[in-house]
């Protein structure tokens, strides 16, 4: 009996050493930062954005991070973050966090006020900062906007964005009145953002059909 125990203990020690040695230190988590355009008439589209957030809450796993921020006159600010969370590693706790997050977003959507300007670049910078700090392995920025930037006079935003390893998805890019008259305006706008993201090392994608949300976090 004693001999058996003496045999089992080294086996357990070796197994424990093996598994601790195999512990994967590389992050497998995902970080998602969603920017919501609250300027002008686009604020009315926020119900759609809420559905997308709910979808994200359903598919994100324990350990993943999610933040939702508004795009207003000066978006490069923590104050514009509506809600942020890094889900607990335990699924039951993560579920509770998701519920609270959903409630907070619901409250925001109901009480949101339209902003006069649209600082998309500032929001992007804030997103980059948040996602880099979160340590997520897969970083995604979702921009729920018409992608028409309208800056306050004096704000400087014409600089290169550092977006290595980032994926930027423009969602529900609605066509403006001018776009209908001259569609080239729309294409030019989209292309400008694509170039800006790709020149910073990021990936760019546009999803206007919200029935295909499964492509948001996929490659």
């Amino acid at each position: 009996m004693r001999k058996t125990i003496l045999t089992i203990i080294p086996i357990l020690i070796i197994a424990a050493t093996f598994f601790s040695g195999c512990a994967d230190t590389k992050s497998h988590t995902r970080g998602v930062y969603m920017l919501l355009d609250t300027s002008g008439t686009y604020a009315r589209e926020l119900k759609k954005a809420q559905n997308i957030i709910n979808y994200l809450l359903a598919i994100l796993q324990p350990g993943d991070s999610l933040a939702v921020a508004r795009i207003d006159s000066g978006s490069f600010s923590e104050k514009d973050i509506v809600a942020k969370v890094t889900f607990d590693k335990r699924p039951s706790v993560a579920n509770s966090q998701k519920r609270i997050f959903a409630e907070r977003i619901d409250k925001f959507v109901k009480t949101v006020k339209s902003s006069p300007y649209t600082d998309i670049s500032g929001g992007l910078l804030q997103a980059i900062e948040f996602l880099n700090e979160s340590g997520a392995n897969q970083k995604t920025v979702l921009i729920f906007s018409d992608m028409e930037e309208d800056l306050v006079k004096g704000h400087v935003r014409d600089f290169q964005l550092q977006m290595d390893g980032f994926k930027v998805v423009a969602l529900n890019v609605t066509k403006l009145r001018g776009d209908i008259v001259d569609p080239r305006e729309y294409l030019k706008r989209i292309d400008k953002w694509r170039q800006r993201v790709e020149s910073g090392g990021g990936q760019w994608r546009v999803i206007n059909d919200l029935d295909h949300l499964n492509a948001i976090l996929g490659h």
């Binding site: 598994f19 195999c22 512990a23 994967d24 590389k26 497998h28 988590t29 796993q61 324990p62 350990g63 993943d64 889900f87 590693k89 335990r90 699924p91 039951s92 993560a94």
Partner: peptide
């Protein structure tokens, strides 16, 4: 996953 955590990898 409730014990090991959903974000731990080996």
């Amino acid at each position: 996953s409730e014990m090991f955590g959903g974000a731990t990898y080996i």
